[in-house]
Structure formats: C-alpha cells, structure tokens
C-alpha cells in the first residue's frame, strides 16, 4: 500500500464548465505532494472530490488501496483536511471545536490529548476563548489542529497559507515539514505560489484549467540542470508519434493542444533539435524554459500570453 492516493481520469463538469479535465496522478506514502496552479485551476475541486464533498463526473479515485466511492467512511477516518478557510463554530471555544470534530472522527480523545494538540499549534493559552475573537492565523492553526486531532495518515491542506502574515506562513511550513519528517504523514498541499511548494514538496503536480500540465518529483523539477522545452509544429499528431517512438519518450510531459512539452537535460537541447529535423518534423518553434518558475508563470498566466510569447 505504497500509493495513498491514486486518481485516474478524473473529470468534473459544472453544467458547461469543466473544472477538472481528465486528471490522473498518484500520491505515494510519505510524499509531501504539492498541488500547484492558479486560482480557479481546479485544485480545490480536485481536493473536494478526494474528500467526497463533490461527486466526480467521471474517473476513479482510490485511496489507501480502496475505491473511495464504496469505502468513504473507512478512508476518511484516516484523512485530516482543511479546505479553503478553516471555518469552525464561532460561538464555541477552540477547545470545544476541537473536541466536537474529534468526536465526529469517531474516536474518543482525552482532555490531555486535546490540550496537547492545541499546544502543538500554539493555541493552548487560548483554548477557552470563543473562536469569533480569533485572528485568521489562529483560525488556520485551529483548523490544522482539527485536521490532525484524530491522528490521520493523510493530511489534505488547501491553500493553508492563504491570508497569513510571513510569520504565519513560516509556521505552517515548519509544521508541514515536522509532520512529514518526524511523524511520517503523507501530505497533500495546494498553493498558487510556487515558492511555497518549492520549499516543502517532494513531488509536484501543476494543473491549469483543470488539466495536468506536469507531474514530477520536486528534485527533478527544481533541478537547475533540467529544462522544460516547448515544441510547436505544423503537425502535432505526427510529431508526437515520432517522438514517442524515439529516445525522447521518457522526457515526455503533458500534452497540450498545440504544443509538446519535454523535460530534458539542458545539454541535450541541440541533440533534440537535430533529431526533430531527422524525424522530418516541421518545426515552428522550440522554446526552452529556464526555470520551473518561469515555466509555471508562463503556463498559468493565460493562454493569450503564451501565444504572444510564442509569436
């Protein structure tokens, strides 16, 4: 059971709008899986589908080796999640909220354990204050405490640093690293900021307009020697066919409508160029991207810009 989450061909349509489009990815045990994309890219919708808040239009989700659809409660017992703002009951205290959600998770937790959990997130001294008096950062920390209280194996955090000050962001980052390194949790965390994901993720998935752009280990994605290359041709189908049969197959990244994306060693760009010519592919452009950030910004700031860039 090394794969904690296995998503295959997941799609979600809201009337005419496709929020998630044929998305597949795998989160392995122990991963800090970074889910990267602009606001509205489909991150939240995907996470909500993993948590059964939204029903997929199509596709399969397996978690902990079980189909999510039939094993909802058993799976969710092992999941802790904060989706968007960590909203809790404002008329209850931090302690009361924590206790309430712990009960809902189906476990009995001692007073000490609850208090301890509040200490972990630095809210022990505010345990009996009503949540309506809390700052955004405190609510976020309480939300995480609630996600952690039943000791889940998988933690899903949707934009956990939204609305936090730099200190708050650092706190959350340290907490995620602590949970991963010292407690061996698997963590799925989303953000629209590359810099955040870069610092904590072991694996990264970039999505845009509901489609997967790229999925790889952080190590290779953030390796300065690796370069993303975008190829535009007159005949994409032919080009793709040729490339898939060549040595470049392993470098293949996600297909886009009118582009082929490869990730290769910087040194090999000239070899690729030569091969394309040799394979009789009619090239319009071959565009190397210098870093992931450059690439991410470019793919996620709208297709108009991409086109401009290409021309």
């Amino acid at each position: 059971m090394s794969d904690i989450i296995k998503v295959r061909n997941l799609s979600k349509k809201f009337n005419q709008f496709t929020a998630v489009n044929d998305l597949s990815f795998t989160v392995a045990n122990g991963d800090v899986y970074g889910f990267l994309g602009q606001n509205g890219a489909g991150k939240s919708t995907t996470m909500r589908m993993l948590l059964t808040l939204i029903q997929p239009t199509e596709g399969n989700i397996e978690m902990f080796g079980l189909p999510l659809h039939n094993n909802r409660n058993e799976i969710l017992r092992q999941v802790g999640a904060v989706i968007e703002k960590p909203d809790v009951y404002k008329y209850l205290s931090a302690y009361e909220n924590l206790k309430l959600f712990a009960k809902l998770s189906g476990i009995k937790i001692s007073h000490q354990k609850l208090q301890q959990q509040l200490e972990v997130v630095g809210l022990a001294d505010r345990a009996n204050d009503k949540v309506k008096n809390f700052s955004q950062g405190m609510k976020q920390r309480l939300g995480i405490a609630i996600a952690l209280v039943h000791n889940p194996a998988l933690i899903v955090l949707d934009e956990p640093t939204n609305g936090l000050d730099p200190q708050g962001i650092a706190d959350i980052r340290n907490l995620i690293l602590h949970l991963s390194n010292n407690e061996g949790k698997t963590i799925l965390v989303s953000s629209h900021l590359l810099s955040e994901i870069e610092q904590i993720a072991t694996k990264v998935l970039i999505i845009d307009k509901g489609k997967k752009i790229i999925e790889d280990s952080a190590q290779s994605l953030f390796d300065p020697a690796q370069t993303i290359v975008e190829i535009t041709t007159f005949d994409d189908v032919f080009a793709r066919q040729q490339l898939l049969q060549s040595q470049w197959e392993s470098a293949f990244q996600e297909n886009r409508q009118n582009q082929i994306v490869l990730k290769i060693d910087r040194q090999k760009i000239s070899v690729l160029h030569r091969d394309l010519v040799a394979m009789n592919i009619q090239l319009i452009s071959l565009q190397p991207r210098h870093s992931l950030e450059d690439y991410f910004l470019q793919v996620t700031t709208g297709s108009q810009n991409v086109h401009q860039y290409i021309q």
Binding site: T52, L76, E84, D87, V88, L104
Partner: peptide, 14 residues
C-alpha cells in the same frame, strides 16, 4: 454559510 459544512462532511460520517 459558516463554512463548517465542508469540515463536517470530510469526517467519516455518512
């Protein structure tokens, strides 16, 4: 409205 619904429904409760 309070946002607690999504918290509640991610709990193992049918």
């Amino acid at each position: 409205n309070g946002g607690t619904l999504r918290f509640l429904l991610t709990k193992p409760v049918s």
